[in-house]
Design a protein around this nucleic acid. Structure first.
Lengths: 331, 331
DNA sequence: ATGAAAGCGCTAACAC
DNA sequence: GTGTTAGCGCTTTCAT
């Protein structure tokens, strides 16, 4: 109906020039108080809001950051998005959030969208099957920093921030040893994911070096349902594990469902430890012991890193969010 | 480093005019195949992407929609955001996502941000304490549709889409009657929220009319911890409930933690039913019976409604996402 | 203390 | 088929 107010309209109504209005609205010291008041009053009356498109076009930089994630789910990305959104907004930026559906093609289109919107920088958590990361690197040529989060390329030559996979796994493994577990089932996620590979390797290595006598079983589960089924199956064995290590929240939920069905008492019948974002473990009684891989912390760190990049630090960094052991009653 | 490619640069390199380049890139029939090829080749080489800011400025409408939610959490908003993002992106729009932190002031700032970015429309889920909705209504004067989602104003004169609170509550109540429960504990959330009030009223009304002899206890819990504590406390009573109705996922998680601690067997020791988004109920064994209030469906419906609004239908509507009973084994 | 003018990248009406 | 031109809303340099 009524088009948005502009500097031009205000200036015409007031019989002064556009530049004076612009300066008045910015509290420029040159402008007289009388003029400022007139301008402010009218702009309030008209609900004037500056047109970000015009500003971006004119100044050639925008206050929008892009975020591309595989999927917006309650397992990890909700907390990452929540913290990143908060951080960016508090510092005058906005977040353009896109999900790839774990599809490299969609991911590429999302990247294009970011470019078209002339975002100041991009955060990316890669889809499982992305192999070609050169399109992401190209953005850096245009002075648009790209920071990879969590699901990162193996390529060393890029900015990445991950949870401390090795540290988190090792902490959990130490807790298992400390709890004197002798027969441990390790459940891992999709083996295509870099985090799965890193966690599995760290798991094996820790026990090989520090506790070679502990019996290990390893199984993969690409979703909660498979984790549930693996647990049920393994419980039919004669020799049952005395502890289960869950690589992720998805795995943990599957395992816990089986635990409830089998009416196992934690930690007496079975010990459980997980690597987790912290939400799922507290849904159960006793609460699950876990090493934290906080999406919240990762978001905060990612924003800080983005700020340095925007300030011109093109130094490639590979940061880790530190891991913390949170003791529930499940081990 | 290297500034982004523009029509001007391409036209200069090729020695043709800007408009020809523009038309070639749009596959305008007037342009010769030869010219088109030259233009396409160069624009690919330069990674040309049109500047959305310039287009928005020129055409005076953007392909960005705003979304303001209290918080991005795994309880409900993750699925809402996921579906809304997907829907908008699939139709050529992008989503600018802002969270208010349940603070009316931040909410207002977020609204300003939407205006500044000249979004085509706004979805809002109000913070608990928002009383003044006139700023939202003003957007409509500028032909920017505002659609309220889930947490909506009581005001009748606006576009809103909610879950079917009454239907969801009634369905759950019917299931409780059908299961022959005689002594039901109803646990409800923050009584300031419109959805709490509606669900509680529907709950009372159903039993008053249809099953006045069933004994009802009602309690409030503003978070999972309180729901946990209420359950623990009530289980110390001589006369224990034979079923618990949980108004939301937050309530359900608290109750289930207590259920596990008390080692109650579902559904024999106690029946449980909830109103839920569907994620939490399947974490438990047996799975929890619930009436679904799907953020996913709500998002889809909201987008459809936005399309009609953008197409000019300014007809005020009050839509409901229908409720479905999903049977787990908890009742 | 204020104004005029150029230009950011693009579209679209109008020429030829 | 292709070019010219005006202008979207704003910032910013240079005048006055």
């Amino acid at each position: 109906m009524k088009p948005a107010a502009t500097l031009k309209k205000i200036s015409e109504s007031l019989g002064i020039s556009i530049s004076t209005v612009s300066r008045a609205l910015k509290n420029h010291p040159d402008i007289s108080e009388a003029t400022k008041k007139k301008v402010w009053d009218l702009s309030n009356l008209l609900d004037y809001e500056p047109n970000a498109n015009a500003i971006n076009l004119r100044t050639n930089h925008s206050k929008v950051l892009g975020l591309i994630v595989p999927v917006i789910s309650g397992y990890f990305y909700d907390s990452l998005i929540a913290s990143l959104e908060e951080e960016t907004r508090l510092h005058g930026y906005s977040l353009l959030i896109l999900q790839s559906g774990d599809d490299p093609m969609v991911e590429l289109n999302n990247l294009k969208l970011c470019k078209q919107n002339r975002v100041a920088g991009v955060f990316v958590s890669l889809s499982t099957n992305t192999v070609e990361i050169s399109p992401f690197k190209k953005l850096s040529d245009n002075d648009i920093p790209v920071i990879f989060l969590d699901k990162v390329p193996t390529d060393v030559d890029c900015n990445k921030i991950c949870v401390a996979d090795v540290a988190a796994t090792t902490l959990a493994a130490e807790a298992l040893v400390e709890a004197k577990k002798k027969n441990i089932l390790g459940l891992f996620g999709n083996s295509k994911m870099s985090i799965t590979q890193e966690r599995k390797a760290a798991f094996h290595q820790f026990f090989a070096i520090n506790a070679p006598k502990i019996k290990l079983q390893i199984a993969d589960a690409i979703n909660p349902m498979e984790a549930y089924q693996r647990t049920i199956d393994i419980w039919k064995q004669a020799k049952k594990p005395d502890a289960i290590f869950c690589m992720s929240d998805e795995i943990l939920t599957g395992v816990m469902k089986a635990v409830q069905q089998l009416k196992l008492q934690l930690p007496t019948d079975l010990g459980i430890i997980a690597i987790s974002n912290g939400f799922i473990p507290q849904l159960y009684y006793p609460e699950i012991t876990y090493t934290e891989t906080s999406g919240y912390k990762l978001g905060k760190l990612a924003y800080t890193r983005m700020v340095s990049c925007l300030a011109g630090s093109s130094f490639i960094q590979n940061l880790k969010v530190d891991a913390v052991l949170v003791r529930g009653g499940s081990l």
